Amino acid sequence: MAADEAEGAVLRLGAMPAHADALCVFVHGRGQSPEEMGEHVIARLRNATAHVVLPRAPGGVWYDARAVDPLSEHTTAQLAASLDAVDAAIDMAVSEGAPGDRIVLAGFSQGACLALEYALRRPGRLRGLVAFTGCRVGGASRARAAAFLNGLPAYLSCGDADPWIPLGPFFEAAHDLAQAGASLRADVFPGRAHEVLDAEIAALDAMLGQVAAHRTPAGARRGAAA
């Protein structure tokens, strides 16, 4: 099933909400659309029993600045509105019967940055986090109060020379998650283009399956990064 492509409309894929064994909210990147993520990421999942909601950014952008730019008042306001959009996507699906206690938040590029910010700024709702090529918004974030993530399973990935997300900010995000108590796995892929590899798709598949079964994902260790 799918929503129309009107501005602000979400895309709905996978199992019907009331029949799903997990809820996945997947956030697209800058200049992308839910339809692109549906084709290039969600269609490659083996898991067919999750309900997947893909929210849509106004104009295809969650915030105007680059993630590595200093956090401005304008970016802070845009970020808050985008985090509200994630909450709205979750609330909509849960109101229709999707499992509110088995939520995985995932995203690619700017969507991955937004997913990271949601996990650290609005803890408590998620049972899994997957960030393909992301970092914290606004650069180094040690001064911000860390959330208590209580072993939240988290998977982060990046290329070793990604044109949008440098390795320094990527590892800072991994550090923040570990410091906040996430059970973390982080992969860096040599020579990988700005895309999502089969190995990354497999990690999201595993996260969805294990969250649906109320299990901690295999290989996820508290504060561990590879």
Score class of each variant (00 low, 15 high):
E96P: 00
H175Y: 03
S95F: 05
G38D: 12
A131L: 04
A186T: 00
N150S: 12
L11M: 14
A146E: 11
H175Q: 13
G209T: 01
G59R: 05
E96Q: 15
V25R: 06
V68H: 03
D84K: 06
L13D: 01
P99R: 10
G134M: 08
R46K: 10
A98W: 02
I42W: 07
A3K: 04
R30E: 09
G191Q: 09
S109T: 08
L167T: 15
G223M: 08
C135V: 02
S95K: 14
I165Q: 02
G219Q: 13
G159I: 09
G59M: 10
A65T: 13
G138L: 10
E172Q: 14
L156T: 07
A193V: 09
L197H: 04
A161W: 05
A112Y: 06
L79M: 07
V211L: 04
A50N: 01
A88T: 12
G223Q: 05
S141W: 13
P190M: 10
T216E: 09
H19V: 01
Q210V: 10
A18W: 11
E73H: 03
D84W: 00
D176N: 00
Q32N: 13
F26E: 05
V188A: 04
Q179I: 06
P34V: 05
V10I: 01
L126A: 06
A218D: 15
A182K: 13
D4F: 08
G97R: 14
A89K: 01
G97S: 10
F132N: 00
V196D: 03
A15Q: 15
I201A: 10
E7M: 07
A98P: 09
A50T: 10
V61I: 15
A77P: 00
P166V: 01
D101L: 04
I103F: 02
A182P: 10
A146M: 11
I165F: 02
E195Y: 02
A20H: 01
E96K: 14
L71I: 07
A50D: 01
R30Y: 13
P17S: 06
G14E: 05
A89P: 00
G159H: 06
D4A: 10
C158I: 08
A145P: 04
A81S: 12
A77N: 05
A85Y: 00
V10K: 02
V130G: 00
L71F: 07
A220K: 01
D198S: 12
A161T: 13
E200N: 04
G139D: 05
A77L: 05
R122Y: 10
E73R: 11
L116C: 13
C135F: 02
R222S: 15
W164T: 03
V10C: 07
P99D: 09
S141Q: 07
A67Q: 03
W62A: 06
A93D: 08
L126F: 04
A89H: 01
G159Y: 08
A213T: 07
I103P: 02
